[in-house]
Design a protein around this nucleic acid. Sequence first.
DNA 1: CACAATAAATCGAACGTTCATTCTAATTAG
DNA 2: CTAATTAGAATGAACGTTCGATTTATTGTG
Lengths: 199, 199
Amino acid sequence: MFETYNKVQRSVLETTLNIIIRKEIQATSMALIAKESGVSTGSIYHYFQSKEDIVNELYKAIVTFNGEYVREGLLQGRTIREKFELGWSRVIDLGKKYPQGFQFIEQYSFSPYIYDEVKQAVYTGVWCEPMNRLYEEAIQQKFFIPLNPKMMVQMHYGQFVYMLKAELHGIYELTSDSVQEAIRSCWNAVQLMDVTVIE
Amino acid sequence: MFETYNKVQRSVLETTLNIIIRKEIQATSMALIAKESGVSTGSIYHYFQSKEDIVNELYKAIVTFNGEYVREGLLQGRTIREKFELGWSRVIDLGKKYPQGFQFIEQYSFSPYIYDEVKQAVYTGVWCEPMNRLYEEAIQQKFFIPLNPKMMVQMHYGQFVYMLKAELHGIYELTSDSVQEAIRSCWNAVQLMDVTVIE
DNA sequence: CACAATAAATCGAACGTTCATTCTAATTAG
DNA sequence: CTAATTAGAATGAACGTTCGATTTATTGTG
């Protein structure tokens, strides 16, 4: 997750993520980060400009990591349908494998604590863009109904986010079957159907 | 929104909501609340136990209001399909008519700042419960595929939340047509179909 | 290789500010 | 007059950040 950082930075970022999920940004003091990461406050300020800087760096790192992870999935698919399924599978994977990163992004992507220029990355650079293009293509090829592709992507993303959130909070257990079913239901939801219903 | 409170309390709650959306809880000081609400800190502490208490009271008030609003929609429907459409329409209505309340709940429903006992209300008392029952009924009557109804409700809710979030952030404009289409697509997503596809 | 000279990294105590909360005096209402 | 309410200065704790001292790493020199 933090491959591009040095040992100290990584320790600080990992610790900060940990504490923020356990507590909250406001309750995450520099003293606590220093204590739990084993790096003194002085050193932390040698590598980061401020507390805000740490949190924004953390945000950037996680978004980049997540983006790469999903993009890889999208690339593996051959057909549109396959790309669709592999892409969204990866989104759910992320939530299950890296729940802290997932929760952090979820909780703070709309917080004023994250700089706007950093937030932009969520909606552009990352995986939204390739996913948007996939949906555009699916509309052109008459797989999907002609709705705003960006809206469809947002809707489907939200669907998976809440599926994961509820699982994280113990509302139910997500089996791989129900995940597959959920992804399929998303496809069905926006599928352009040329069918005759025989009752 | 705050009918059950007196004038002072209402002013404090409204102001607090305003500031929290503009800034953030940590940047929402009592001094600022006092200044903008026109109530001195002394008086605020006469009506509320603490800052936490204000925020939690705010949370409770909004959740209750939202719950009632959606429940009303659900009651108006005659058939399952109608209840489904009217219920979700109200959810979207809430996001458009009371964006601050919507954003606040979205941003803090998973924050440790809100007491667990208060949070429980989100998943139980409010509108989730009636909506869950509606989905259960829809499964029994073979309208919906036999997935976990709670999961389906969460998924659909997430879909609308993200649709609204993206609109709030100016990604696109939500027309009433596209909202109707989105609700319909949710129904299609989990519909149990007994059809033959003729190509 | 030895050893000095310089730079980089680390530390934690101290600083100054901010902020939630308290307290007391003043004001209002019944 | 009495009791409730309001006001805002005072309090004290918490916190982000700075700074100078100390240690560790790197480079230069004979």
